[in-house]
Design a protein around this nucleic acid. Structure first.
Lengths: 241, 241
DNA sequence: TGCTCATCGATTGTCAACAATCAATCACAG
DNA sequence: CTGTGATTGATTGTTGACAATCGATGAGCA
């Protein structure tokens, strides 16, 4: 894990240390600098971030809430491990949430919506064409997240954010394991086309198909890479939020 | 998980102060002992619960995440205020979540499911008949929550829990303001009947109608009781999570 | 060998004091 | 009287030290 040279005396990092640490730690987890299953201790992280255990503790608590960390009282805290069931749940939930978001947005689609969707699609295409896998993961999340933003539904948005982290974690692990990640560009082309199309029912079908493809691919990866890790379920069973 | 018989007499969960405080504080908020909009300070609560500010702070952070508290850095923390938009969002989200839950459960409905649903309906009816409004709120939440439990979908369950608190807060405030709360018993009778019925589509319609009734009732209450409270939006605009 | 139990190191949980920030107040000049 | 800037009290943010708990280790013994 790389320490960014000393600790810059840049005041006003974020209104509070906690928010700053949350971003840094989450980023480190999603970038794979701390691999799934690895233990993270408050003391070492506090030293790395140059703060005391207090704010760091609260930051970890938030990441536990986001489902990126798992903790066992008085014992230890680990980066969450991949689970096939979790991935199934995430994708089935995504189908549900994204259809709901489109139902909210459908009648309010305007030129700005069209532009926003197309620009994000273009960015995603660019990242795929240049084989920048890490950036393409982010671009894909930006594309899908756009719908939730436009919906203006705060609870829906927060729910999306609560699963986005784990989704990104799965994708990032998938990328590191398989070298190439390869999201289906034509899949997103038809996704965007239908999102701008005439029929909401067609879009519903598109979302289900879109998620089925992505979910299946991720499941296959997990089944192959997770064989023989039985202690994980044991850890999760005893874990508390 | 079964408790090992060895020394399993440690009755109190007492695992951590934080969990205990979260329950106590949330209960106090939902019971109205701290009214919406009231300020809660860490020091006074710490003294009240007989603990230091550390664990209490983490407990508050969790309730902030649950949407029961709102905090402004370095300034203060308040019990969240009712907002018409929030209620709209909660109810629209509930329609979505509960339909999803029934889609998951529908094919797996068995005798245990039927029994669980009927017993909770009976409990709700009993509370309504005895005019125990506070208990009927809890009973209604138990009835609806049962669906999410049975679904076995952890993310869906957590999402439901993340809005349940605010829903309960609204209902409790409604009850205190109007004296009588009066959930529609026949509404729940048809709800349960359709939940045990043959057609999933009918159940979808039932859920939409059920939420429309409850949502409209709560909205009317908020519009009448919240007139002239404009500074609230100001507070929420500056609040951070 | 195989089992029990005390011990030890590691990690999280808790505490009380100190620092930073904000909002209200008040003196004061125009 | 009105607006403005310093002051002050209140509240959250941060810190380092101390306590409680857990899992592993190894000694002791049948």
């Amino acid at each position: 894990m790389n320490e960014q040279g000393g600790r810059g005396f840049i005041r006003i990092p974020k209104a509070t240390f906690r928010a700053h640490i949350v971003d840094g730690l989450r980023s480190a987890i999603l970038k794979g600098e701390i691999s799934p299953g690895a233990q993270v201790t408050e003391s070492s992280l506090a030293e790395q971030f140059g703060v005391s255990r207090g704010p760091l503790r609260e930051a970890m608590r938030q990441l536990i809430d986001e489902g990126l960390l798992v903790t066992i009282p008085y014992t230890g805290t680990h980066v969450v491990e991949l689970s096939v069931d979790d991935v199934r749940e995430i994708y089935s939930m995504r189908v549900n949430l994204e259809i709901f978001a489109f139902e909210l947005v459908w009648e309010k689609r305007d030129e700005a919506f069209r532009q926003g969707l197309l620009s994000r699609q273009a960015e995603l295409t660019r990242c795929i064409d240049s084989s920048d896998d890490v950036a393409s993961i982010d671009a894909e999340l930006q594309l899908h997240g756009f719908i939730y933003e436009v919906s203006g539904h705060k609870i829906l948005q927060k729910t999306w954010e609560s699963i986005r982290g784990r989704l990104q974690l799965y994708w990032a692990a998938h990328h590191r394991a398989h070298g190439i990640r390869g999201p289906r560009r034509d899949g997103h082309d038809s996704y965007v086309a239908n999102a701008l199309g005439e029929s909401l029912d067609v879009m519903r079908t598109e979302i289900r198909a879109h998620m089925a493809r992505g979910g299946q691919q991720t499941e296959d990866f997990l089944l192959s890479s997770n064989a023989g890790k039985l202690e994980r379920s044991d850890v999760q069973a005893r874990a508390t939020r």
